[in-house]
Design a protein around this nucleic acid. Structure first.
Length: 551
DNA sequence: CTAGGGTTAG
């Protein structure tokens, strides 16, 4: 990295012919790519050889947008949007005007790294530079609205509007829209889109149906999913390995391992081949169901098919080992990894450390934490959260706070929540408020867990209006029945029954889903308070009837 | 250059 930033002015990376070749190795990590670059750049003139006004007709010395796009795509598929942006800036600096494809690549890579706002900026720039979007550009715009911002009205508008710009939505555009709808469970609407594309003579493929299957599987509607697979076969939209992986995942989760075996046994007949993800998915299901031995047998099977476990597969097995109370084994696999020439990843450490935490082996957690440093592995925010949790559980809350405040600690919302929860248990209200302040300052966005603790805290301090206010703010993050449970307990304990009735009436009016947890918490809270003996029982009955839509 | 799948924390 440093070699590149130190060279000023930096020559365009793409002026070196062999880089075009390099960019084909999209599976290469960005670091590997950068290493190649910095080596090549050492032989490159440090002066800027690129005149801003080339003589007409001469072959330009600087690279063509195609070449930049090739390289940007390589970084994009390596998940490195920072370098995509760097190249994008660079090409503009060298007066190499981005074409529609370049803008599309950059916007898409920003989406992949979850920066929808930045992607919008790229689209705006595209328009203001007078570059006309093509179908692919519009497709990424649909992806932005449907899969990231969930603004489906705008997504539909793009699909309709692109016709006027001389572009036709294609199977990718429609499949993208269907994906977005299915991700939020709007399956019937997705079928509506499918109808539209069929009417237009746009032929669906596996990408069109698979998101729908995914939605069914997420909702636990396995029978519907299986029926959809038959439909796909009937309309000549053959399910592929991804389709089957989703189905196998759902079946494994439901413990229906015989059916998984059946699907695997018939794969050749159906014309698809299991891959690493197929095996990993199945193995994870087996491990979670306690069938760790069977999972290890599958490891042998996949290797015999020429498929090799990757970090995820190994993580699943490590997790399985811990679940079978073999955390000591998992721990030594990590500690002694160099003996068998394996380099574990951060997630591998996180997995074993969190399992050790669960069984109270806090010393081992710290031991692995230091082992990571010895191996030169950088802990991530998950690691830190797990260690904070381990220290808190071990009763070393001061130590946890010290670690939290130390340099280099990557605090995310979970680390904050953990520390806040334990400090709250200890009655250190001052510190809790201080941490909540700090969270805002550090731009760590609170989530439902945070709001739950805040509601509890505010109620215990008698600040009921603030607690209710906190609840309404939490709705920006979506609906969480658990927060209502917190509010119920807090308000009943604080004898604010009138406030409780008001807020519950409002909740019912908004049409939020009332689950059994909320229902039970009300009954339990009233019983706990002893209200069942007096006239307040009528208030309780009133609310319960309200929930059941009797009133 | 554009679409879908598997692992870890409160």
């Amino acid at each position: 990295m440093h070699c590149l930033t130190l060279l000023r002015p930096a020559p365009p990376l793409l002026a070196i012919p062999s880089l075009r070749l390099l960019s084909r190795f999209s599976s290469n990590t960005s670091k590997a790519l950068l290493l190649h670059f910095s080596n090549l750049l050492k032989r490159f003139p440090q002066e800027n050889p690129y005149p801003s006004n080339p003589s007409p007709g001469s072959r330009p010395l600087w690279p063509h947008p195609y070449e930049y796009n090739d390289l940007m795509s390589a970084f994009a598929s390596a998940g490195d949007s920072t370098n995509v942006l760097r190249l994008f800036d660079e090409m503009k600096r060298f007066n190499c005007r981005p074409d529609a494809a370049c803008y599309t690549t950059v916007a898409n890579s920003l989406l992949s790294s979850n920066q929808p706002e930045a992607a919008i900026a790229v689209f705006k720039e595209m328009v203001s530079s007078g570059v006309l979007p093509d179908t692919m550009a519009y497709t990424v715009l649909v992806k932005l609205y449907a899969c990231y911002l969930r603004q489906f009205e705008l997504a539909y508008e793009v699909v309709h509007g692109m016709r006027d710009c001389g572009c036709k939505p294609d199977v990718v555009t429609y499949s993208t829209l269907i994906t977005g709808l299915c991700q939020v469970g709007r399956v019937s609407e997705a079928f509506g889109v499918l109808d539209v594309m069929l009417n237009e003579g746009c032929v669906p493929n596996a990408h069109t149906y698979t998101p729908i299957l995914h939605a069914y599987c997420t909702a636990g509607q396995i029978e519907e999913a299986e029926r959809l697979v038959s439909t796909m076969e009937a309309v000549n939209c053959v399910p592929n390995v991804v389709t089957y992986n989703i189905l196998i995942g759902a079946l494994s989760k439901a413990g229906r391992f015989n059916e998984v075996e059946n699907i695997l046994a018939n794969c050749q007949l159906k014309g698809w081949e299991p891959d690493v993800i197929t095996y990993s998915t199945y193995m994870d299901g087996l491990c979670k169901a306690g069938k760790v031995d069977r999972s290890f047998m599958l490891l042998e099977e996949m290797v015999s098919h020429g498929l090799y476990p990757n970090k995820v597969t190994i993580n699943i097995l490590l997790d399985g080992l811990c679940k079978r109370s073999n955390s000591l084994c998992a721990q030594s696999i990590l500690e002694r990894s160099s003996e068998f020439g394996w380099r574990p990843g951060v997630v591998n450490y996180n997995t074993v450390m969190s399992r050790l935490c669960e069984v109270g082996k806090y010393f081992s957690v710290l031991k692995l934490f230091t082992d990571m440093f010895k191996k030169g592995l950088e802990p991530d925010s998950w690691t830190f959260s797990i260690v904070v949790q381990g220290l808190c559980k071990a009763g070393k809350i001061r130590k946890a706070k010290c670690l939290f405040d130390s340099n280099g600690f990557l605090a995310n919302v979970v680390a904050y929540n953990t520390l806040i929860r334990y400090l709250y248990f200890l009655g250190e209200v001052e510190e809790v408020y201080h941490l909540l302040d700090q969270m805002t300052k550090e731009n760590v966005v609170p989530n439902h867990t945070t709001y739950g603790i805040m509601i509890e805290l505010l109620c215990s301090e008698g600040r009921f209006e603030a607690a209710i206010n906190c609840f309404s703010i939490s709705l920006d993050n979506g609906w969480s029945p658990n927060l209502v449970v917190n509010l119920v307990w807090g308000l009943v304990a604080g004898e604010k029954i009138y406030k409780l009735v008001k807020i519950l009436e409002w909740i019912v009016k908004q049409g939020f889903f009332i689950d059994t947890c909320i229902y039970c918490s009300l009954i339990k809270a009233f019983c706990w308070r002893g209200s069942c003996q007096n006239t307040e029982i009528y208030t309780l009955c009133y609310i319960l009837d309200l929930f059941l839509k009797i009133r």
